[in-house]
Write a protein that binds this DNA or RNA. Structure first.
Lengths: 287, 287
DNA sequence: ATGATCGAAGAAAATAATTTGCATGAGAGG
DNA sequence: CCTCTCATGCAAATTATTTTCTTCGATCAT
């Protein structure tokens, strides 16, 4: 599905000529997507047949097949190679921000481990109480989004951004409870401490964080999210979109697992909103 | 840039043969992206030259050019035609959620009006005080994200999800203040009331909401966000991603306009985080 | 009503791109 | 030093695409 990843993976096993082709692809993407096989071959100083063979090797039926795969990926998956916004005009800034956001979602998706997701959904759906922890503007937003998503499905959940509170909640938690915490940097040591504390009592701990970080090491289950950020300090971090995406995936999985309870709870909430707010029942659940 | 939109726009002005081509494109996208000009022509019962002319008409240089544009769009822009997730397996659910999120960003971007953005950024960057309003899980998240993004840039801002508080804040606001409010449904009448109240005092009001809705009508400046939602009640609304994207675009624009103040403020915040939390100064700003 | 004009659409030819088959040469292994 | 294998390019064959030319049908003015 993702040609670009395939090229990078296989790159070591390619012949010299094929490596030259790969380098052009990775380096000047726009050219590669627009070029004919002859142009591409010339630029790489190889013959067209070599290009065709290269495409076959990467699992495409033909060069045009390959170009289509390339173009599909191009839309999102390659933009991180691109420099920052061209100007500070609204249109350029919007394109930059939105591209980066889509890309964060793309990269998160690529690295997502279904096996871990399955375990996470399983534990959450069977939890008697869920504690969602996260501090600092970004992670606290994720924690409250977890609450906001899961309470609708009938889960018992509270969110906290307060270190002291988190520690007390973790200490008060019981065997069938679950603690799920977010840390963009992976260096929220207070959160790691909560995890350690909880694990001593046999409580499931789930981290949304950078892989191989202190927080990741402290948790039982880790949903790893490693998104490279550019160095534009003015643009809000696009990593938030990746985290939010993970929250939604988790919430959907829990909903499917507790389908009956979710349906009933959602219907109740809906009913209240319709009665007390307005009559249009085709609206989203709670503004 | 977006072939798909172009086709839908021009559809009415196409000749019968060209409309048949358009219909195949819109209907069986995967086929169209993979097909050669001959196959496509055959399927539409037209001759290849007609297909070439069709491509030219849509602003492409050639058929292959067209196919590349099509493939680029395909990755995100067409999935909203697709049905729901194939199964409730983690991999399928993740793909469904992330595709819908990317798509929401895509559609938001397509409809975004740079002129309005420019005005919004102008008002916000010159505001003496900003009030961010939004209620219900979704819009309250957006309001606090606005605060979370803008305070870092030196803006004076508070967020509120509480109707009564909003009304009082709006009443207390002064001439150079700005009220920015979010409503996914567009039917948050309390918010509309705040806007009306504020406008009477000559205060700028900005709405992030559905176009042509009560809230939109009550505001001076409207950033319209109209995202069709599927009817899967279990999947969290992907519209959140669109709203969050708008928040980020706005924040970036304000940052560029108040570049000096933003830089100083961001640096201060960074410094505090580094001193009090950890030493790695390549980390994101605040977990 | 009839001819003129325009544009859509296809046929066929020309052109361009792509693939295949085959030959060559370099390098590894015996 | 031979032989085998593999990468690669050349040229031919195939296939795809575009251009040109022509026809057909609709519309409009006379």
């Amino acid at each position: 599905m993702d040609i670009f990843a395939t090229i990078q993976e296989e790159r070591a096993q390619l012949s010299p000529s094929e490596q030259r082709i790969a380098d052009i692809l990775l380096g000047d993407f726009d050219f590669a997507v627009g070029a004919s096989i002859i142009e591409l071959a010339e630029r790489a100083s190889v013959s067209p047949p070599t290009v065709t063979r290269f495409c076959r090797r990467l699992g495409c039926q033909s060069f045009s097949d390959f170009k289509v795969s390339l173009a599909k990926t191009a839309f999102v998956g390659v933009r991180y190679l691109n420099p920052e916004a061209k100007s500070t005009e609204p249109a350029d800034v919007a394109e930059d921000v939105i591209t980066k956001a889509q890309n964060a979602l793309f990269m998160m998706h690529r690295a997502l481990d279904p096996v871990v997701l399955d375990k996470v959904a399983d534990r959450l759906s069977r939890a008697e109480m869920i504690y969602a922890f996260g501090s600092g503007g970004n992670s606290s937003m994720i924690a409250s989004e977890l609450q906001n998503r899961l309470f609708r499905l009938g889960s018992r959940i509270t969110a906290s951004a307060d270190y002291h509170m988190q520690l007390m909640l973790a200490a008060a938690a019981r065997t069938n409870d679950v603690i799920i915490g977010s840390s963009f940097s992976g260096r929220n040591l207070e959160l790691a401490r909560c995890f350690a504390l909880a694990q001593d009592s046999g409580i499931t701990t789930i981290a949304l964080t950078q892989s191989e970080s202190p927080v990741a090491r402290a948790a039982e289950l880790v949903i790893a999210i490693d998104i490279p950020e550019g160095d534009n300090i003015f643009r809000p971090t696009s990593t938030r979109f990746a985290y939010l995406g993970v929250v939604d995936v988790i919430a959907s999985l829990v909903a499917y697992r507790n389908r009956k309870l979710s349906t009933v709870t959602l219907r109740h909430i809906k009913q209240q909103l319709v009665e007390h707010r307005d009559e249009d029942d085709r609206q989203v659940l709670g503004d």
